[in-house]
């Protein structure tokens, strides 16, 4: 059986800043360098790595929010990096939670959650509302359905963003640094939710700094360094007994 998501030789560069262009040694910055990665169905792959190592970039290119320079992104065996494909339809099969949540400030939480159902999945209003309320209940936000995002706490915004990404039943869930802005108690709350999703057999690709989460729900951990997957394996292997020097340094810095 093919993996739900496979990256094959994915390369992504960002152009050097305009100010530095043309100067010697200031070429395009390679953020993802020949990345191979598989996410099997019902599995959770966790990306770890230093700030700036390309975790968010990897999630963005999978979500087709950025174009790759080379390689293939296979979703269910189909190369979605092919520009001939309808990117909107591909994105509609995924759910993404952004590092900064990116909720729509001019819409109530409920409308944030129903937007894609109504516009992309063409569900009638009542049906979309019912599905959204159900999803908000799951993430413990049913009582905030009519609030605006800026009336929510950080953890509530996070959960609203998760509800928005989940409500259309995406095949693949992309989560970027889901707990970066939360205090420990809220982190626990959100991580419980994610563990629950994992238990339901969702397929997830998650970037995180939260090693506890990686240990708890990851089937595989990938350590990104220098644009490459520097080390990968089960959480026990990578986090417990890293084989490579860089990984050890990174983990020991986190621990201290």
């Amino acid at each position: 059986m093919t993996a739900l998501l496979s990256l094959r030789g994915v390369r992504k560069t960002y152009p050097a800043p305009a100010a530095a262009r043309g100067r010697a040694g200031e070429e395009a910055r390679v953020v993802l360098d020949d990345i191979d990665l598989d996410v099997d169905r019902h599995r959770c792959v966790v990306l770890i790595g230093a700030s700036g190592s390309g975790k968010s970039t990897l999630l963005r290119v999978v979500n087709l929010l950025d174009e790759i320079d080379d390689g293939q992104i296979l979703l269910d065996g189909q190369d979605v990096a092919d520009p001939r494909l309808d990117a909107n339809a591909v994105r509609a099969r995924m759910g993404m939670v952004f590092q900064a949540y990116n909720l729509f400030p001019h819409m109530r939480v409920l409308d944030n959650v129903t937007l894609a159902l109504r516009l992309v999945h063409r569900r009638p209003r009542e049906e979309a509302d019912a599905a959204a309320v159900e999803m908000l209940r799951r993430v413990g936000l049913a009582h905030k359905a009519t609030a605006y995002p800026d009336q929510l706490s950080g953890g509530e915004q996070q959960r609203a963003a998760i509800a928005r990404a989940l409500v259309h039943g995406p095949e693949l869930l992309l989560l970027d640094e889901v707990t970066s802005a939360l205090d420990p108690e809220l982190v626990g709350e959100v991580l419980d939710l994610l563990a629950e999703l994992r238990g339901e057999g969702r397929t997830m690709l998650v970037a995180t700094h939260e090693m506890g989460f990686a240990r708890r729900v990851a089937d595989e951990v990938c350590y990104l360094h220098d644009g490459q997957v520097h080390e990968r394996g089960t959480p026990e292997q990578v986090l417990g007994d890293p084989q490579r020097e860089r990984t050890r340094t990174f983990l020991s810095r986190l621990a201290s």
Partner: peptide
């Protein structure tokens, strides 16, 4: 731009995100 990214990430087309996400905020 992150607002557009969020809208497009949900599968909205360019025109749909302009109409439902960008313009309402722009006008306000």
């Amino acid at each position: 731009p992150s607002q557009v990214a969020a809208a497009r990430s949900l599968g909205l087309s360019r025109a749909q995100s302009m109409r439902t996400v960008v313009l309402p905020q722009a006008v306000r």
